Computed example of a mutant assay.
Amino acid sequence: MSIWEMLAVFAAGISAGTINTIVGSGTLITFPVLLATGLPPVTATVSNALGLIPGSISGAIGYRKELEGQRPRVLKLTVGALVGGLTGATLLLALPSTAFETIVPVLVALALLLVILQPRISKAVQSRRARTGTPAHPDGGPLLFIGLTLASVYGGYFTAAQGIIYLSLMGMLVDDTMQRLNAVKNVLAAIVNSIAALFFLFVADFDWTAVVLIAVGSALGGQIGAKVGRRLSPAFLRALIVTVGTAAIVQLVLR
């Protein structure tokens, strides 16, 4: 890897760490850069997953204030993230490289649709609860657990737009602010990246130079993203998610 390629990977790591903390889809920045340096797709995917761990942890730490009072919710969803992340990592090595990527644009598109409709859906759900006297489930109930577990399977496999899918599901099923849900998203992403990376360490090939460059860059980006992200209004954050997600779909389709 030349010095210019190293600088490009490092810059991609900073950008990915920043955008992952705010909305997700940072892999759509780092993955093409790693491929451009000559790494095979699976090696690039594994190296990317390893390198983004510090960024995910950094972003979660940056949102620690918004995590206050959410421990029961996070602990429950962590179980699904662990199971899903390990399953996705296993599938990455067991299935053809195109198996999941063919449905990724569809998944991201559905997630964006949920993000757009989330305020209307949440209002309808709240009205129904008021009429029936049914209290809101603090952690989203079984439907959210199953949905996030399946999203974590995808996250362990490829990670691109994983955060967007998390936010769309939680926004629809949990009565809480976008910033607090974003904090939970960062924790779950860190867990999925970590469990997948631990699995890859023992069974897959990766490039240490790429891992270190992305790790340092994403850790810096995680702190930048936390400072910027918590200042965004719910409407702006939702618009940013839709913009990034749309760009993700275009890139995935054209790749």
Rank of each mutant, 00 (worst) to 15 (best):
G17H: 07
T102K: 15
A36V: 05
L107H: 09
P54F: 14
T159R: 08
R120A: 13
V228Y: 14
L28N: 15
S56I: 02
P96S: 10
P119W: 05
R180L: 05
S47T: 14
S47F: 05
V174E: 12
T27L: 03
R129L: 05
S194N: 04
L169E: 07
R64T: 10
T45V: 08
V104I: 10
T27A: 15
R255V: 01
A12P: 09
T159F: 04
G85N: 05
V115W: 02
V74L: 13
Q118R: 05
A248R: 13
P142W: 10
V23Q: 03
I165T: 07
T21V: 03
A89E: 07
E66M: 04
L52E: 13
P142R: 11
T246A: 15
I29Y: 11
F10N: 00
G156H: 05
V192G: 02
L188N: 02
A89H: 05
M172L: 15
L213E: 12
L188S: 00
I214R: 12
A196H: 03
I224K: 10
L39T: 02
F236I: 11
P72K: 09
G221I: 09
I53H: 06
S58E: 03
R231F: 06
M178D: 11
D205H: 11
I121S: 07
G155P: 00
A219C: 14
D139P: 01
T177V: 03
G24I: 06
S194P: 02
A226H: 09
G80S: 02
V187H: 12
A161P: 00
G38I: 07
A210T: 01
I19F: 10
Q179V: 15
K65N: 12
Q179I: 14
T27R: 04
A94W: 06
I165P: 00
A151I: 12
I53K: 01
L92Y: 01
T90C: 02
I103K: 05
L232G: 13
L52Q: 15
T78I: 09
S25C: 13
L117A: 15
V244W: 01
T43L: 02
N186K: 02
T45K: 06
P142G: 06
G51N: 08
V33S: 14
A210S: 14
L110N: 05
T90K: 08
G221R: 07
L92K: 01
L67F: 06
T21Y: 10
D176E: 12
E68C: 09
L254M: 14
T98M: 09
V115I: 15
R238E: 03
T243W: 06
V212R: 00
S58C: 00
V46A: 13
F145T: 04
L220K: 08
I19W: 03
E66P: 00
L148H: 04
R71E: 10
T78W: 06
F202Q: 12
P96D: 13
G13Y: 08
S194A: 12
G155E: 14
R230H: 14
P138C: 08
